[in-house]
């Protein structure tokens, strides 16, 4: 079975006056039909840019995809022109963004924003599209959908708007949905509702999901596979269970030990990762995590470690990946 989405050596750089920002610097991953893949990392690691690249939404200038391939159902999305990609974006690939406050158009009704997509992509007429919009709003748990489609985004709360975004992403029955920090702006109880909804709907409709987040708890609950990004590269990949049980990259290890956990006894102190994330315009010759790494050896300063297998479907980009366990213990 070939993958639904296959990204190969993608490089997206931003050409700014301060220098070339290598936001995404050679990443490869794939998404199979119906699975949930998480991309985890901290701000500035390139996780959003990698998703925007898939959708052809990189602002140009200053940004440009300088290399690689994004194969979706066999087509290379990078080679498509604007018109062709527009027929895929929203139709085959849905999107859910972080800010439910800004991702809806404030001067159009909810109904119009939903029907517009369906009229454009599915060639429906207004009446049919409206019927379908009501159906989808009910599906995502919005009460009185007949009344809601006449309302404007400012009538709705943040959680409701995110539900509308989900309805919009689903309404053309896409094969893949990219959710960029879908619940970061929401409260915990609402976050739980929205994530559970997304999980159930994508599972029921067989839609693959790329979920981009910095929240390790969200990943643990909802993702099948995980890609951990740092400084524009994927530094670890594997099944969620494997990555959490046995992280094989010092950064993942550091991330996991730096969050306090509710299910474990209180620790005396947290164990943070020292230092700051690197400046993406001035990346050194070696591993970009080197300045913050507790396990570094001489080789790390001169050679960039490749992403290599450490186990069944588990990959890590670290020269010391085999030796982390000992030092940790």
């Amino acid at each position: 079975m070939s993958a639904l989405l296959e990204i190969e050596d993608l490089r997206t750089h931003f050409f700014t006056t301060a220098g070339v920002v290598k936001a995404v610097n050679g990443i490869s991953y794939d998404v199979q039909k119906g699975e949930t893949v998480a991309i985890v990392g901290e701000s500035g690691c390139g996780k959003s840019v990698s998703a925007l690249s898939v959708l052809g939404l990189i602002p140009n200038p200053p940004g440009r995809i300088v290399g690689g391939a994004i194969r979706f159902l066999g087509d290379d999305l990078i080679k498509l022109d604007d018109l062709q990609i527009r027929n895929i974006r929203g139709r085959q690939i849905g999107m859910i963004f972080q800010e439910p406050m800004t991702s809806l158009n404030p001067v159009l009704t909810i109904g119009l924003q939903l029907t517009e997509t369906m009229e454009h992509h599915l060639g429906m007429d207004r009446a049919d599209a409206e019927k379908k919009a009501v159906e989808y709003l009910r599906l995502v748990g919005i009460s009185e959908p007949e009344r809601r489609i006449r309302q404007y985004p400012h009538h709705l709360s943040g959680g409701m708007r995110q539900r509308v975004m989900i309805a919009m992403a689903l309404c053309c029955e896409p094969k893949l949905i990219i959710a960029d920090e879908p619940t970061t702006a929401l409260d915990v109880t609402i976050q739980a509702q929205i994530l559970e909804l997304m999980k159930n709907l994508t599972k029921r409709m067989g839609v693959a999901l790329i979920i981009i987040t910095h929240n390790l708890g969200v990943v643990a609950r909802y993702a099948d596979r995980v890609n951990v990004m740092y400084a524009g590269k994927i530094i670890e990949r594997g099944l969620a269970a494997d990555i959490y049980r046995e992280p094989r990259h010092p950064y993942t290890l550091g991330l996991l030990s730096s969050v306090p956990r509710l299910d474990q006894p209180r620790q005396k102190r947290l164990d943070p990762i020292d230092g700051q994330p690197p400046d993406l315009t001035r990346l050194g010759a070696g591993c970009s995590f080197l300045p913050r790494c507790k396990f570094a050896v001489d080789k790390c300063a001169s050679e960039i470690p490749p992403l290599e297998t450490v186990g069944n479907g588990h990959l890590s980009a670290c020269w010391e990946k085999e030796n982390l366990e000992m030092v940790k213990g």
Binding site: V188, I190, E196, G217, Y244
Partner: peptide, 27 residues
Amino acid sequence: RALLSAVPVPDPEVEQGRDVSFVAGEV
């Protein structure tokens, strides 16, 4: 209780088996 239950734990093994009681509705 609802608040505590809504926080996902960063561990898939704990999460998969965890019984979550979500609170419905909004503030």
